[in-house]
Amino acid sequence: MSELSPNTEYLVHTLYKSREAKEIGDILEVECGTESLGCDDWTPVEMERIRFAVLKLATESDSGLENALKLVTTDWRDLLMVAGFGEDLNAHEKWYESVAN
């Protein structure tokens, strides 16, 4: 399990009610953790791009979280493409700014 960055925690609490936020945070730490995705030496900030992609897709439809988790565990690069974060290394930061403000 790997911890969430402050920005990821902020997004989770912005997008979800407190009870759901705890569950979503736990899912991100376990299902989208550094160990489970083969990103063992990545920091919480380096994991933001992947975790933000999961959060973005999760908010787009009722089955968004389930679909995002399937993608991230199959190949997280596909997840980045579907979320629109694959071509621009800063796209996830731009999305964060649009949601956080």
Rank of each mutant, 00 (worst) to 15 (best):
S36C: 03
D75V: 06
G84L: 03
I50N: 00
C39N: 08
E87H: 09
N101Q: 11
S36V: 04
P6F: 04
E46C: 02
T59D: 07
H13T: 13
R49L: 03
R19W: 12
S61A: 10
M81W: 03
W95G: 01
A83D: 11
P44Y: 01
W76H: 14
K22M: 11
Y96W: 10
F52Q: 00
L55A: 02
L79M: 07
P44E: 01
G84S: 05
W95Q: 03
D88P: 10
L15Q: 12
P44F: 03
E9Q: 14
R49W: 02
L71Y: 09
I24F: 07
A68D: 04
I24P: 00
Y96R: 14
E31D: 13
D41I: 03
L57R: 04
L69E: 08
Y96E: 06
E66K: 11
D62S: 09
E31T: 06
G33D: 07
L69H: 10
D40P: 00
E97N: 06
N7T: 09
K70D: 15
N7W: 08
G64A: 08
E9N: 15
D62W: 06
M81T: 12
G64V: 08
S61F: 05
R19S: 15
N101F: 06
T14K: 15
E23N: 15
V99M: 04
L71E: 11
E23S: 15
V12P: 12
D75R: 02
N101D: 13
I50E: 00
Y96T: 07
G86P: 00
E66D: 14
D62H: 09
N90W: 07
A68W: 05
N7E: 14
G38L: 05
Y96F: 15
N101H: 12
T73I: 04
L65D: 01
L57D: 06
T14L: 14
S61Y: 05
D78T: 11
N7P: 09
K56D: 00
R51Y: 01
D78W: 10
A91T: 05
K94C: 03
E46I: 00
T14Q: 14
W95E: 00
I24N: 01
V99A: 01
L4V: 12
E35I: 10
K56P: 00
I24W: 07
L28V: 02
W42Y: 15
G33V: 04
D41S: 14
D26A: 13
A68R: 05
D26H: 12
L80N: 06
A53N: 04
K22A: 14
E46H: 04
G33L: 09
L71V: 06
D88L: 09
T74A: 13
H92D: 13
G38F: 05
R51M: 04
T59V: 02
E93I: 12
E66W: 00
G25R: 05
N67S: 11
V72P: 02
C32S: 11
E23G: 09
E23W: 14
S5V: 14
D41F: 08
Y10S: 13
T43H: 02
A58P: 06
E29M: 15
